[in-house]
């Protein structure tokens, strides 16, 4: 079986994409609401990734 090596950023970005897709599909009632909610979740994931990344960087200086 092939082995895959991803950085923290790549792995968490992929996780954010697929989690947001599923959260968007299973919640809300209309398609536009689903798209908006999926994008909102992805935005929150990104904000958390960058926020925690900077926090860890500054915490280790």
């Amino acid at each position: 079986m092939p082995n895959m090596n991803l950085t923290h950023f790549e792995a968490s970005l992929l996780f954010a994409i697929f989690s947001s897709l599923v959260l968007g599909v299973v919640t809300k009632k209309t398609d536009s609401e689903r798209v908006r909610y999926g994008l909102k979740c992805f935005g929150y994931f990104l904000a958390t990734i960058f926020g925690l990344g900077w926090l860890m960087y500054l915490g280790h200086r």
């Binding site: 079986m1 092939p2 082995n3 895959m4 697929f18 599909v25």
Partner: peptide, 18 residues
């Protein structure tokens, strides 16, 4: 189809990352 692809790809990525 969206759910199938999301779950399968996430699972396969997990397997490929050992």
């Amino acid at each position: 189809a969206i759910l199938l692809s999301s779950v399968v790809v996430t699972y396969l990525l997990g397997l490929l990352m050992r």
